[in-house]
Amino acid sequence: MIFPLAFVGALVVAVLVMRPKMPNEPVAAAATSAAAPDASNKARSAAAMMAQDPLPQLLAQDDRVLEERTRYLAALEAAYRAEPVDSQWAAMTERALVDVSRGDALAATRIKPNAWSVQCHSRSCKMSAVFGDYDDAQDWANFFLTGTGGILAQAELSVRRDVGGTTHVLIFGARR
């Protein structure tokens, strides 16, 4: 019963849409007001444009995004901290991750992380490092994660420029 009704409804809509407009029919309000601007309208438009300067909105949006990103990372950190420690798996995985970071493949990139740390609990690992250069940080993190194929199931990466000019890499990796 619904489909015939839908068909009839569609026909009615199609007829309404295709119906020609009458000559004296009002058109869109915006077009009418734009067609005959006077001096006061121009002044109002300029004021409105200034009021609509997108920069403050964009900056506020950036702040919101940063805030949410920070909140999200804090949630990952909290989940990691709440995990019990499986010492056997943690030790084995930490060793494997450190091996990747010290392997030939990463050594060949000539990018060296500072303050590199790896800590695993029972379902995830937290890794962090500091770099002098932002692009080096991005590259190294990407190469490192590419090398973790047999170790981690997935990982989330945060690359953040610090106030002092360094870049901080934070990785949360999930157990396979």
Binding site: V65, R69, L152, Q154, A155, L157
Partner: peptide, 20 residues
């Protein structure tokens, strides 16, 4: 590693996930 970027429904921040 497959690198995906996505946004979950209701979230306003893109997430980048690595699947090695």
């Amino acid at each position: 590693t497959l690198v995906v970027v996505f946004r979950k429904p209701g979230e306003t921040v893109d997430r980048t996930v690595y699947i090695p």
